[in-house]
Design a protein around this nucleic acid. Structure first.
Lengths: 165, 165
DNA sequence: TATTGTTATACTCTATAACTATA
DNA sequence: TATAGTTATAGAGTATAACAATA
């Protein structure tokens, strides 16, 4: 509830704003390289993970379902996505990437170098600390910490994971 | 140049994506509270710091100058911004916030609680570490570290500023 | 001749409301 | 009746190209 307007906090806020700006810059640029808009790239990325009903796409994008129609229309007209019927419910249409769509999505993901390239300048311990701080900042404290994190646990969790006092 | 696809790095990338998403969510929400679009809020925020020629606004927004005309038009029609002539060059028009615009910009800034509220859960030392890591990530290493940081230096820079190895 | 801001045009994203076909 | 997807419509952001005023 406390406002928190000390210089250090304000500087961190400023830095986060810069991170956000650069992230978007790189994202839009990567999408444009494939002649896609940001929204189209986002939907293609979602579908590359798993086919989704139109309704679900709208929920992920936090927009009205009517907008998804046009976005998928454009992706479909370019042969990157196709609409398939849902056997379980004839009202829903599942949007799924074509083969071309899958490879485009993969290239897009690979081009999104942000935070992967710059992260290279950080040591393993530093990346671990950064992960912890971001998680706490996002209110993900110690909840469900038992997924892909396990894979990296065997190397050197040591004081990197400590609360830092 | 190394791709960096280890689980830890990927998790940090994922977290940064989440931070970006939440930042935008809060930004758009704060803007909507004042019946402003994201672009309008961004321009108003820029002008609250200092009046700018149309051309400069476009550069800050990384968009074409022709787009700024419409955005400023809408802000002007709502009495939040006004266009003033530049005495030095009669071609340029300086966009400046009105009194109402300034107060709206201030309310907007205050409402942008993200990273200020959640940052409250971090200790001073943790915020210092986060600041350092973000700066390194953004390639701002030790360059010009002699500004507002000085104000907070008297408390406990200690190992918080250390490279952490 | 170059630059600043604008207009005109076209496309995409967005929300709202009404429609259809299913359920 | 309720839900999934679509269509229609209108407003806003975006890029491109052409233009007037000024430098």
């Amino acid at each position: 509830m406390t406002p928190r307007t000390d210089p250090l906090t304000l500087e961190v806020v400023e830095l986060i704003g810069t991170v956000v700006a650069r992230y978007h810059e790189e994202y839009e640029h990567a999408a444009a390289e494939h002649a896609l808009t940001g929204a189209q790239a986002r939907v293609l990325g979602l579908l590359a993970r798993e086919p989704l009903p139109m309704r679900r796409i709208a929920q992920r994008l936090k927009c009205e379902p009517s907008n998804v129609t046009g976005i998928v229309d454009r992706l479909e007209s370019r042969g990157l996505v196709e609409r398939r019927p849902d056997p379980a419910d004839r009202r829903v249409k599942l949007a799924a990437p074509t083969e071309a769509g899958r490879s485009t999505a993969e290239e897009l993901r690979a081009a999104l170098g942000f935070a992967r390239e710059p992260l290279g300048g950080l040591t393993f311990a530093e990346r671990t600390v950064l992960k912890e701080l971001l998680r706490r900042m996002l209110g993900m404290d110690a909840e469900d910490d038992t997924e892909d994190t396990a894979g990296a646990a065997g190397t050197d969790p040591g004081e990197g994971s400590a609360p830092l006092r």
